[in-house]
Design a protein around this nucleic acid. Structure first.
Lengths: 134, 134
DNA sequence: TTGACCAACTTACGAATAGTAAGTACTTAC
DNA sequence: GTAAGTACTTACTATTCGTAAGTTGGTCAA
């Protein structure tokens, strides 16, 4: 076998802590503000653009379209356009997308279920602290 | 029992899909660009500010300090300052922080392990697509 | 005894990103 | 004939982020 240790050593192991690692880019897409919610929403099945817009509170059409395109380019989301008028476009998760969505959903559900245990989740009563990142 | 169904119905169940739900804010903190990496970094034990800065590639002091403050305010991170000169400050995870970090780390590790399966992880060779969100 | 230095921040400001609102194309309904 | 629905795109503005420099207060070398 010519697949020696030297050859194997040339294969870079992904490390998110490295700024230039592609995994960093993927992580940012998946954990982006709307990316997380899109993955969770689509984990139950396909949805139309307007349905996603209604389902995900607070998302703008611009951000929804942009984030869907990013996730599609990454290979997590599948876009299927039926050529009819008015337009009908279905979005769904690829097998890869389902795997990622599962991890993301685990986090989301943990937050929902444990919200009362999280001090920062209280509606910041009289705390004069400058609450960053919104 | 006076704890009737009406009373129970008044308790709001957290839903990230609702824009105003506090869970949304927590989710944004935990999945923020540097929040994710801080949680993963601290999941192995306490670290000093400068050690975190070196460990997390690409993070600026400004963003590190800001994100640490947000996670501390949420109750995920514990800041312990030893009053010495030069300053010595240790950051660690609270029990709650460890739970959250576990979920986040699951996602991060999945991305690292499956990176080669993710089409969008390729260094975008000659694709003329406008790659958003960096 | 000035001065450099360290760690952990903080502040100022230009750059990038996100959000708001309006525009587009096409057809059905009133 | 105009209002509405669908899936976007474009223009503009607000917010956030990143870079670089400043701050604090003791230690240590010159």
């Amino acid at each position: 076998m010519s697949g020696s240790l030297e050859t194997l050593a040339a294969i870079e192991i992904p490390d998110v802590m490295a700024a230039a690692c592609p995994s960093r880019r993927i992580l940012n897409h998946v954990t982006s503000r709307w990316g997380v919610l899109i993955l969770v929403a689509l984990s139950r099945g396909k949805m139309r653009f307007s349905a996603l817009r209604r389902h995900i509170g607070g998302v703008s059409e611009r951000m929804l379209a942009q984030t869907l395109q990013t996730l599609e380019a990454d290979g997590f989301v599948i876009r299927k356009s039926h050529n009819v008028v008015p337009p009908h476009v279905d979005y769904s998760l690829s097998p890869l997308g389902h795997e990622a969505a599962e991890k993301v959903a685990d986090l989301v559900f943990w937050i929902e279920e444990n919200l009362t245990r999280i001090p920062g989740a209280l509606p910041e009563e009289t705390t004069p602290v400058s609450a960053k990142t919104g």
